[in-house]
Design a protein around this nucleic acid. Sequence first.
DNA 1: TTGTATGCGTTATCAT
DNA 2: ATGATAACGCATACAA
Lengths: 329, 329
Amino acid sequence: MITMTEIAKLTGVSQPTVSRVLSGNQAVNPEVRERVTACAREHGYQPNVMAQSLAGSRTHLIGVILTDISNAFFADLVKYIEQEAGKSGCRLILFNTDYHPECEQECLEVVQRYRVDGLIVVPVQEETKEWRDRVRRLQIPAVVITRQAKGLDSVYVDHKEAGNQVGRHLHEQGCESYVFFGNMADEKYEGFREALETLDPANRKRFTNIATKEPAAVEKHLAKHLEKYPGRAGIFAYNDRRALQLFGILQKMGIEIPGRAALVGFDNTYMCEYLYPSLSSVSQPNEAMAAKAVELLLHRIEQPKEELPAKAYPMHARLIPRSSSVTAL
Amino acid sequence: MITMTEIAKLTGVSQPTVSRVLSGNQAVNPEVRERVTACAREHGYQPNVMAQSLAGSRTHLIGVILTDISNAFFADLVKYIEQEAGKSGCRLILFNTDYHPECEQECLEVVQRYRVDGLIVVPVQEETKEWRDRVRRLQIPAVVITRQAKGLDSVYVDHKEAGNQVGRHLHEQGCESYVFFGNMADEKYEGFREALETLDPANRKRFTNIATKEPAAVEKHLAKHLEKYPGRAGIFAYNDRRALQLFGILQKMGIEIPGRAALVGFDNTYMCEYLYPSLSSVSQPNEAMAAKAVELLLHRIEQPKEELPAKAYPMHARLIPRSSSVTAL
DNA sequence: TTGTATGCGTTATCAT
DNA sequence: ATGATAACGCATACAA
């Protein structure tokens, strides 16, 4: 790979002149410019980013640390992050923590070594103050994505509000009892229950939470709930994956969807449309989140002196009603 | 971020001595070692990879260029590549071409600029000689993954053989007519037909290929096929996504699975187990492929002089029979 | 065992 | 407009 110095020798000028020509924004003799440009093109010159970074300041590298790239939701996010970052000439150096805190810690060290310009992180754990301080000590502009993180910029979906939407929707569809499939610590759960209880305090009792993922146990809990509550049951699963699992179990049990049980998932993955009946789901604004995260990051990178306070950017998810929860469709 | 030179000043030794201590594999006075190590740790020293790369030779960066990171199959592959590469201290710089050849071309330039040690590529187009030459001219060790590419190392699944397996399986399950859902240029198609015709030349006629993805058209073609052939139909979809689409359509049509139609997908995604009936599918050895690709690449990186001829590594996929195609289950 | 000197490929600051 | 020269942070060859 040819270097500036070599081009300089070939064209009989000094290396800094070559630099000026190739960087473009300096005044140089048109004839020299021509000669140098031609030589560079002819030899397929490509600048050495490592050297540029050493001499200059930026690496144009953004560290992306996430918990599970094989998760369709995160993979989608990465796609948009790459796209947005590319528009500003930034590249991604990717890390997968696989939900291991030690691994995450190591990643934080490695990004330092690469002197990345910025960091986009999906944290492994619920953010403790200690974790946030550790990240801030890196002195690297960082944005937390997917989760709220006080003390750091964060872009995420307002899950509570999303849960609210689902609650109202299932109520509107005439459900008479409710099931949340997922962890009670989830804010979706909170929003879901809140909406239901606001609409009718009696809903408080007509509610079952299923946390296990084990098929047999799930089926048992569902059977019990359906036996107890004869009317239509409104079921909300914390993601489409789980919704699909429920879908299969309900079909196996011979429960009619949406007649006896109305089902709503989360993430609005491609499968929703393919299922029969098609699956209602909550769509997260992935592209918008990615764009916002990159925008925030670039802003922090370009205005490093501005000691802007950390800011949270909650974004709205949107329920996509389909046949699994709407009789009229 | 503290540098070796600064540590040198703080500890009263020369910068090369600090380098020797921190690199570990050199002889230094134990007492000095202690002092330097302590200072480095205290200030959270992290080596500057950019500088290391400039001075040394390797960047420990592997360029990963793929067509669509949001595709679950590729995302899974990336996860394992990251894992394997990490074991050898290599990091990933990730590019998504979104199936655009111009974008791919640009990525090939950018990886040069970052002086990556090696390259793992999922090419946009079927590999032409011109494309291969362009990659080889980069003078960067490269491995093509997912597709066979003569003239470059490549790791991929033998789709023809996989199609064969599916053909034999569906035949064994007593299918009397067959449908391939996908492109006829696909090697899976070739293997599928070959197996069927070998088993019974008459199968040649009892065959329908559906290439469209448009739901209404798919349904029409399926209805026509089923009307024409009364016995059980064996359906092979080129991936699970399409298989799911068929699944929904068949359910909508009221076709019994696997009684009237036996269905087999490809990729063995998580959804297979959740569907009811569970979906038979062909499992690709993602982890093994990733490991092999990284292994090949590292070998090329470490033995750059060895002008090894390009080698192809076809790997075997494995059919996972489930309820959608097996009556006995 | 340790320090000096040099080079990696740039950018940037001087002169000229 | 252009050429010296230094600097970025590190590795390495050589001298001491």
